[in-house]
């Protein structure tokens, strides 16, 4: 296993010390890599957050593969880091997720066309609205969901090795550390999706869903909730089955299609959209876009 090489690490730390942990320093790094001419196995980890308002970014270059725990060790995450929000990505994965996002958008457009040809204009309009909404979903790909520094230290299965790979030949990774979220989101077959939903502790999940107007074809009695740890679960929200569930910050409520409204070839569409929503990350979307 390769540790941070003394020279490059020392140089990086020195560079960071001198230049400060600014975006400018991150952009200056490739020159440094050229100097060392060790690009074949070098791994660079850009650490974003958690103070997003200042667009706080730092990066470390390692001479070879590096464990996530080592990155945590050198990055010394801020005490305000909310571990459930930890994410790690690279360009290849991000491109893959964005490609999936476009594919699913097209698939939902095709579904709209299917409804249209079957003279179901209400459903066609709803699917068309959803397709437009999908394009706007703030998605940031990730390999991990919510790994803490302690998790990485104590459990090797949560402490992956970051390496140069076929799809990531430059060995560039982005580790995103964020503070606790304050908002949730409600998306899917709703007329007014809310990406920054302010939570009201007096409201149940059913209340939250009742507050939005559902589009034609929406499954009215249950919704899917995707939580920060990347898990998702179905929750009942109708008058006859709701169970006073509450909504946690960072969660995404997805109102899907009622299965009975879906043609056979689209029966898996809800599941595919839920899988995509696991990458929901509005805070990092804009910031990571700038970094990468």
């Amino acid at each position: 296993m390769t540790m941070v090489t003394k020279n490059s690490f020392a140089a990086t730390v020195l560079t960071l010390t001198l230049l400060g942990s600014t975006l400018a320093s991150a952009r200056a790094l490739p020159q440094q890599q050229d100097t060392h001419n060790e690009t074949t196995q070098q791994v660079t980890v850009h650490v974003l957050g958690p103070d997003l308002n200042q667009q706080h970014s730092r990066h470390w270059t390692f001479s070879g593969p590096v464990r996530l725990s080592q990155v945590f060790d050198v990055a010394q995450p801020d005490a305000s880091t909310y571990w459930l929000q930890t994410r790690l990505t690279d360009h290849a994965l991000q491109q893959q997720v964005l490609r999936k996002q476009r594919q699913l958008q097209q698939r939902v457009k095709n579904l709209a066309a299917h409804y249209h040809t079957h003279y179901d204009d209400e459903l066609a309009k709803a699917a068309q609205q959803l397709a437009q909404q999908i394009a706007e979903w703030p998605l940031v790909a990730t390999y991990i969901w919510g790994t803490s520094r302690n998790d990485a230290r104590t459990d090797i299965m949560q402490n992956p090795l970051l390496t140069v790979t076929e799809t990531n030949s430059r060995g560039q990774y982005w580790l995103m550390l964020q503070s606790a979220p304050e908002h949730a989101a409600i998306v899917g077959l709703v007329s007014q999706p809310q990406f920054q939903l302010t939570l009201d502790t007096r409201k149940t999940l059913r209340d939250t869903v009742k507050d939005v107007e559902l589009l034609a074809g929406a499954k009215e009695d249950t919704v899917q909730v995707i939580t920060l740890d990347g898990q998702h679960r179905q929750y009942p929200v109708a008058y006859y089955n709701a169970k006073a569930d509450s909504l946690a910050p960072g969660a995404v409520v997805f109102v899907g299609f009622d299965d009975s409204e879906l043609p056979d070839e689209y029966q898996t569409i809800n599941q595919e959209l839920i899988e995509l929503l696991r990458f929901w990350n509005p805070e990092m979307k804009s910031l990571w876009g700038q970094q990468s």
Binding site: Y143, I156, N159, T163
Partner: peptide, 8 residues
């Protein structure tokens, strides 16, 4: 896989 020598 058991050494978690990659991410996937």
């Amino acid at each position: 896989a058991i050494a978690r020598a990659d991410l996937t």
